[in-house]
Design a protein around this nucleic acid. Sequence first.
DNA 1: ATACTTGCAAATGATTTGCCAGTGT
DNA 2: ACACTGGCAAATCATTTGCAAGTAT
Lengths: 156, 156
Amino acid sequence: MTVSHATALASVPAAIGTLRSHGLRASAARRLVLEALFAADGPVTAEAIASGLDGRVPRSDLASVYRNLETLEAIGVVQHFHPGHGPGRFAPATDGRVELLACERCGDVQAVAPARLDGVRALIEREFGYRARWTHFPMAGECARCSAERGPAAAR
Amino acid sequence: MTVSHATALASVPAAIGTLRSHGLRASAARRLVLEALFAADGPVTAEAIASGLDGRVPRSDLASVYRNLETLEAIGVVQHFHPGHGPGRFAPATDGRVELLACERCGDVQAVAPARLDGVRALIEREFGYRARWTHFPMAGECARCSAERGPAAAR
DNA sequence: ATACTTGCAAATGATTTGCCAGTGT
DNA sequence: ACACTGGCAAATCATTTGCAAGTAT
């Protein structure tokens, strides 16, 4: 999966500071999770973090990774979302939390600034009184590339 | 969960006919699944079907229920979607497949005719080249009732 | 008669929990 | 020191798969 992500809210040292300011410990396992998260080129699964991203040596227990991701999310330095089926993806938190458009065909997830969806959001709110938010559960559909590949005939 | 659903594409007897026309058997287990689906007042989980909806006597094996739901979906008499977390929900297929707005707060899922979302879809397509489809994965956000309960102050 | 189907058990994938030993501060 | 954490095993939840016995057509 590819996700063009926004600039992270903080760095590993900053995240460790946040951890401390919450009375939490900067354990080795937590540093590992943070390093994996910041080293990755996009949102990753807990499993990927636990196994050292791509087989890199230092590994950590999967249960601990989940626990730490939860802790880190609670203090606002991590965020996660659920692409279609399969495991959740985690990434460093960004300032204004990005919204996501997931392609059901190729699995790609595109991140966009919330402002770019405000017009759409307003339209939906007028019509349904419903306030849409595509941060934790992305918008589902077909990306531009896949639509093009299937040909303009596939347009409805 | 509540889902105001559209009119079903068929009835139990009609579904059995479709089954036969596909060279498939109208077994007792399949009738049970169909009856549960058509008797329910909205989308239900496989588990609910397997345990007889609300304790009603005739029960069926969960694995068979999943297998049959899959078969029934393949021939177009059943459809399913994934509300936020938790198990998927199944319902009789409707003519134009409805689109869904799920509330992340109260869990309610509202079904709407695709046409009512065409303006929104067009706007998204112009802006992102992305063709949105909220049938299998509902739109996520907060329903009107929950927004109101939290007070207009919660508006952004 | 013979495929299609079922029930039951076991496997899978994702995530969580219990527990006690280990370690940051 | 002492509470916070980590590792490991086991539990949970949703769903799938293997397989031998059962049944619709």
